[in-house]
Design a binder for these strands. Sequence first.
DNA 1: TGCGTCATGTAACGGGTTACATGATTAT
DNA 2: ATAATCATGTAACCCGTTACATGACGCA
Lengths: 179, 179
Amino acid sequence: MSLRHALLGLLAEEPASGYELTRKFERVLQRYAWHANNSQIYPELSQLRDAGLAAVVDQGPRGRRTYAITDAGRAELLRWMRNPPETFQVRNEFVLRLFLLSALEPQEARTALQQIAADSDTMLGALREQVEKFDTDAEPGAPPPIGRLVAEYGLRSYQTLHQWALWAQDHIGQASTPR
Amino acid sequence: MSLRHALLGLLAEEPASGYELTRKFERVLQRYAWHANNSQIYPELSQLRDAGLAAVVDQGPRGRRTYAITDAGRAELLRWMRNPPETFQVRNEFVLRLFLLSALEPQEARTALQQIAADSDTMLGALREQVEKFDTDAEPGAPPPIGRLVAEYGLRSYQTLHQWALWAQDHIGQASTPR
DNA sequence: TGCGTCATGTAACGGGTTACATGATTAT
DNA sequence: ATAATCATGTAACCCGTTACATGACGCA
């Protein structure tokens, strides 16, 4: 039940409404870590509330309800963080398509790799901006927030993807024939 | 419906039984690309057969049925490969946990990062062996098979993770306090 | 006044997980 | 003989997706 813990993790940073959590998923988690949309988030928040792991701490206009993590919620999040499974399940259609590139003719595979190289380059630009923003906002000498570490991870991952796509273009050959 | 196309992709390489496909998922796709188990694979193979995208080409002992991709199946795989979605959905609990490291005390987060560095190092060893095997088996001058490109991707990804985990240990500070 | 955004949900359906169930073949 | 592996599947349940539904608030 990762969605539950993703929500607890976001609420551990600061209280938020279902709407704000939906936005956070879109901005922060969606690209590398976890995908969820509002029709999943609202029912899960209700369950979190019923289970005593989160509580409504504020009501605003348009029926807005701000949730905060409770002590029990914090304990549950810690328990989960301290007990990782030995193996993690991954579902990433993008990488799946990389694996199945051999089903295409080499020329078509090369074109696909070019597209990947271009897209990852665009992503790199956005991530570099994000990292720079962290670094200019930081007080000199102070250790960076975790968000900075995560952005660094994203940056390095896309750099790796980009460089691999360029490398693969050079090494993909006529001999890698599909059958 | 990525599972369907993952199966078609594997069958495009060579005919296989449900059992063999389950093994291939475990060995090849599971770690980076897609997770599936036998109780999903067998029904999906039946559907593939009913849809004319795969066909039983051999029967062996213990009721073993070898499936092969049909021309229609190949066409469907190509169509899918040529029409990628603009955005991909990602669900990776491992990365999610990286994002939520800020919920732990810095000391505990550092310990978790050490574990990640150690685990990724183990993975690197296995991947290096795999890559070497590809390279010693290859005829000199011949372009590498797609499997070699994918192994390279895995290798680079784990290298990136490993180096990031070391870097993050050095940069995680007392200031990254959970609230 | 009208558009964009904020804000919350439900319902039907499809995909995925866990647990269960069964038995044949091969190697030791 | 026995254990490991090969080999196939079903059933109940849970999680996630898509589409739908509704309306208040703030700004131009």
